[in-house]
Design a binder for these strands. Structure first.
Lengths: 104, 104
DNA sequence: AATATAGGCAACCAAATGGTTGCATGTCAA
DNA sequence: TTGACATGCAACCATTTGGTTGCCTATATT
């Protein structure tokens, strides 16, 4: 879980996921296109995404195809975000109550 | 949005949010209890959470009360995670298809 | 007034991070 | 088989990060 959060913390990596979301199964060079970064930097980012299991790769000859794995993202939503949704209204009204109490 | 992702990337900070979720409106020292960290380290973490608008503070005399703000977490869920949920099944079946094609 | 308590500020530090360059390897095509 | 192309590996670098220590300030308490 920690690896996933860490992987998602970087905007370049999130944009790589976006690109794979738009078009799945891209090669490294394809993913490099238009990015202000060297190919090696992209390789590192993809490595981190792969380590976090957010991306799966498949070799096809000399090409390496990158596929998005949406499962860990879904898990973050289920196991983490939803927990805070439940308490959401309660937390906000408690805060509001305290803010008002301040002026007494 | 980037600030929120960055703030959530650290396990210590996520655990601080957990503690505020369990009991809202805690003081700095209260939040330090049981953590293997100095008070100053916790201060820094809380500062980052506050900058990301995940925590709101309220001074009460010499105490500083910390309140959880669940809105940014909710937004991550709405604006980011949900996007990948939509393509989820499609992405997985595409990946499955490619994995099978490999053996041809 | 004296002391304890809650928190703030700033300098410093080691390790992690995000990036680079240079070179090597594997694979396809003419 | 000889380029050309797709990717891999490794060393290096600056900046950020997560943490520390030491000291200072402000508010309670007695």
């Amino acid at each position: 879980m920690d690896e996933v959060f860490k992987a998602l913390a970087d905007a370049s990596r999130r944009s790589l996921l976006d690109r794979l979301h738009a078009k799945n199964g891209q090669t490294l060079n394809e993913l490099c296109d238009g990015l202000a970064m060297t190919r090696q930097a992209v390789t590192k980012h993809l490595g981190i995404l792969e380590a976090a299991n957010l991306v799966t790769t498949l070799r096809h000859g000399r090409e390496k195809l990158h596929y998005l794995n949406p499962v860990p993202i879904h898990q973050i939503g289920e196991r983490w975000i939803k927990k805070f949704e439940r308490g959401k209204l309660a937390a906000l009204s408690e805060l509001k109550r305290q803010l008002e109490k301040r002026d007494e």
